[in-house]
Nucleic acid binder design. Structure first.
Lengths: 200, 200, 200, 200
DNA sequence: CATGAATGAGCCTTCATTCAT
DNA sequence: GATGAATGAAGGCTCATTCAT
């Protein structure tokens, strides 16, 4: 296999996965039939099995590709040694960029990750969640210690608040809308950090 | 049918619906089999059809019961003629009470309402969403006009922010935990209204 | 479940298994479709799954029922403490009785046991084969030692000869034909023991 | 096509058929996928269709090549005008030579010929079986008449006994083992003709 | 009220086969 | 001669639903 066919292969897979991700996101994984994905992609259901082992492996590939890219971004941020406030800002901005780029994958992750993580194949979802929680909790706690964040709130509650607040946006965000991901991140951060009531 | 059997009937239905709601919430509507519900309720799958027309009608009953009660509470709040800030506080507190009482129903609503609302049987989900949106948007706009809320933010964005922020809590909230719904509402409101950074 | 429904259940299963065994024997396990079994049994393919977990579990039940009964018979024979000649005669007669009663199961066993025994679920096939081989080889060796059997032949070859000679009969034997299993056993034994050429 | 490419072609076909025969024998015809044969032969599934019309035509070619060679040998024997005993000896020896040379084909024949012979394409299997039966029965009957074989046995039973006895050996015989086909033939003949109990 | 057995539609998947390159 | 991608028919299995008992 040379570089050209290699790319052709990879491109086809990517196309099909993008289609699958959209359908999964729209209908839910269980409610999505392989036939439906195939229809949307313009081939027959059986033909998908030339490219993928199973419906589940499509899901797997979609989710792990998303998480890989997510953690590449997060890694850079966390390694940058920023202060708590700046770290939160950077993480949130990164998250909205992922929502922009991997919208369907994020939506799928939101809907399905809980019950998927019980299956051995998807334990990496749990791993990711744990890492994610660690990173955020540590940043928030550091922020409280440095008085960058309020100390009168339950930190775990704050964590869930910010986490959900950001990711749920995937359920309504559509790329190419009026707001860029960075703009949305800015407004969200402003709300989360300063609240929706005026200061002074 | 006399009053006694009527009540017995109603109680049995309620029990079965509570069981169904829990399973739907835990596994997702599509992934839930009628057999699973029946197992959990201690009878055979076929026997459920003595009580309900279909799996879908169980879902229907669960969701509409939840929405009815939700709107009973919201109606009182909206009719009370409170100021924007107090209205928001009351609505959020009401919401957390619903999460406390109808946890599974709320979770189901979050996961399934989008694609259900396309079906004729579930148009009331759309109606509810629209009413909900109206109430919140009007309250927020009034708040901006009265300078109770910041005017430099996109109101629709604020709406989504607050809405999601509250309801997503259903995905992790468990009744009978360390925080009462009112306590969680207070902390959430504090975050939403004042932000997570200290005010001077 | 009372005795009556218990029996009804067991009878239905037995009926269905008998049908399945015939079809498996006639067409081969792989070439047999679940639909075909269902047609032959007078119900729909899906309905078989009310009674059995899978096509494979039907096969499993057929084979293990056969082997259980086979070994019940063999056990009695081997425990009787007969001489080598009488033991061989009793084993062969038992075998023809099994062919008579479990014809299809024997045929399936002959055709499929080799590649089935690789699967974890069917390791008991290997176990049975080993036990079988042991019993026969020991009996033959004892017979050679006591000069009841010829000593100039390779015992393993004799084992295979007798074994195959008997069981292959399942491929043509039909119950209710002109010869009873005992009569066939007698003729086979006569050939195996004395050969097909006249003894002076 | 010149002689050289013709030979190259023929050799390639033969190679591929040998591979196919081994796989068919090992897994069974139905359970064998074209992909598996291709893997084993080192090319892709689709490429086999340059050489053969179909999976079935591979099977066809394997079986008819085997039967052609078998009948070439049998023909010589039957035309030699030997006595019944010598004829039987020669036929059995021929058979073991075929098992040695065409082991997989023989195994396939044993497993699949019954249900294949129903298909029009494979009627030659039935023809062969009938010719085979005729030759053996006539020889046996002649032997009984000449008192070379015992007259107190059912001749059809004897036929089946000897036939199966020989061919089933294909299921365990592996070429290149400790015994040559001629040696195995000698032992089998000794058992069949003289029995496994000592004579006087 | 509940059971047990069956229905029938549909799902994921496999696989022999085709064909443009 | 071989590849890669696709086809289309079928197969095993699941599941909501029905209904006589």
């Amino acid at each position: 296999m040379n570089a050209i066919t290699g790319n052709a292969n990879a491109e086809r897979r990517a196309e099909l996965l993008a289609t699958a991700a959209e359908v999964f996101a729209a209908l839910g994984y269980n409610a999505t039939t392989v036939r439906r994905i195939a229809d949307e992609a313009g081939l027959l259901a059986g033909s998908l099995y030339y490219h993928f082992d199973s419906k589940e492996s499509m899901l797997d590939e979609i989710l792990s590709a998303f998480l890989d890219e997510l953690w590449a971004g997060y890694g850079t941020v966390l390694a940058a040694g920023l202060g708590p406030g700046a770290t939160i800002e950077a993480l949130v901005t990164q998250s909205f960029r992922q929502i922009d780029r991997h919208g369907p994958a994020v939506a799928i992750y939101q809907k399905e990750s809980r019950h998927l993580s019980a299956q051995p194949r998807f334990t990496y979802l749990t791993d990711s969640r744990v890492k994610f929680e660690d990173a955020w909790l540590r940043t928030l706690e550091r922020g409280v210690a440095e008085q960058a964040f309020r100390g009168d709130l339950d930190v775990r509650l704050v964590y869930r608040f910010v986490r959900d607040t950001v990711w749920v946006a995937a359920s309504w965000y559509r790329p190419g809308g009026t707001h860029s991901p960075e703009e949305i991140a800015r407004q969200y951060l402003s709300m989360v950090l300063e609240g929706i009531t005026p200061r002074t």
